[in-house]
Design a protein around this nucleic acid. Structure first.
Lengths: 233, 233
DNA sequence: CAGTGGTCTAGACCACGCA
DNA sequence: GCGTGGTCTAGACCACTGT
């Protein structure tokens, strides 16, 4: 009697994955119940569960109570991106980090900003513009809107010394975060700030954060030309 | 004797999260062992495990065998992005999808492409350029390099009718995928293809895929102005 | 070596959602 | 209702890694 080595959830996952990739189960098909798969592999149901959750997270299958497990019909490429604190990102590359506050002031929230923050009504908002430097050259220009109602502490921070980004991350963690990436041509002002030509293509990272439903901040980070965003894996 | 409702792993996770956010445990601090936390909450260790894995996935803590669990010192914003098949993306928006093959030919692999595909030596490679349309207007221009050694089947596909993207996704799933986002100014050619002004800022989605270590394809997707990439959540 | 997280099990009950 | 995935438990053993 040979003794099979016990199956790990990764092996189970990979075998199921393979049988999806080789069309044993095609997009839209229903897979057997977890319990049956467990019997087939001779492992516990929870091991199958672990494998299935991984496949589900990866977007390969869809699972529903009572409905069972199905191979997703619309495959997606799913990837995770890490947006580090700018200072750490620069330092990790071995460059010298610099920070420079451009200006800071209160405004009546513009409709576009209020909309993105999901503010029910326009209020006074704190706008902070700042420049992050790498090796003394402009790296990221950030245009930030902060809701002082949600984050009163920010009013006492000396933003000429400490970046709002850093203070917020360390002191006011969010519970929800929306990210958005797009490209724009640098306006004259933005170009001057980043010390580049007007019209240069810039990758913009736009981030909105909330605590519960209370908006914290919306920041548009205009990255210098050449900036790339990579997936982690 | 009151009976406490049983704790779910999400409740455990949220309580731990809270105690990190309120600085009960500061960045760099070591948290108690899972077993102790389980005792404290009166739940099983595996419940704590489940909670901790979630926090670890989210980038809030770092876990090491023997080393224990520590609050991460460099907080990151971590998000997942889904890159759907273009046709599905367009159709989901309620637009009419169109596809148009521009050209197709064999080339000696340029060094830049070979490098990104991690090809040990330059070989013949298939280059396919195509245009995706939304409501009969240019939506995404893709410039794709395919390794025929890895994917011989692609040679028999009529790429004027079916997008290489779609065929590959449905027929040759990858095991590894690198993504990269950046902005460029449209060259004259690219601008002409997308029917926009030369120099317009474009978001480029660059994707490289492999099966094991065998490279499949590298595609640069030049999105029309206004395109945005959103996080899923 | 020994401590800690990672995995696996067998079983129980829960909760969602289709019929 | 009832079938299916989701969660929880108590316990065991494994595997990595710091000391």
């Amino acid at each position: 009697m040979t003794r099979e080595p016990r199956l790990s959830w990764k092996e189970v996952r990979d075998q199921i994955k393979t049988s999806i990739l080789d069309r044993t189960y095609s997009p839209g098909d229903k897979l057997p119940r977890d319990a049956d798969i467990a019997d087939q592999f001779g492992c516990a149901r929870s091991t199958v569960q672990r494998a299935m959750r991984d496949l589900s997270d990866a977007g390969l299958v869809e699972r529903k109570r009572k409905g069972g497990t199905r191979v997703r019909v619309d495959p997606v490429t799913r990837a995770t991106v890490d947006i580090p604190i700018t200072r750490r990102e620069v330092e990790k590359r071995g460059s010298v980090y610099g920070y420079h506050l451009i200006d800071r002031g209160f405004f009546k929230t513009p409709p576009e900003i209020a909309g993105k923050l999901e503010l029910p009504q326009a209020t006074e908002i704190l706008r902070v513009r700042a420049l992050h430097l790498a090796d003394h050259k402009p790296h990221i220009y950030e245009d930030r809107w902060i809701c002082p109602d949600t984050v009163p502490g920010i009013l006492e921070v000396d933003l000429s010394r400490e970046s709002a980004n850093e203070w917020l991350v360390m002191n006011k963690p969010y519970t929800r975060c929306d990210l958005r990436f797009y490209a724009i041509s640098a306006t004259e002002d933005t170009a001057a700030t980043l010390d580049i030509k007007t019209g240069s293509a810039l990758l913009v990272i736009e981030r909105t954060t909330w605590i519960g439903t209370a908006p914290i901040t919306l920041v548009k980070a205009y990255t210098a030309p050449g900036y790339e965003l990579l997936t982690s894996n």
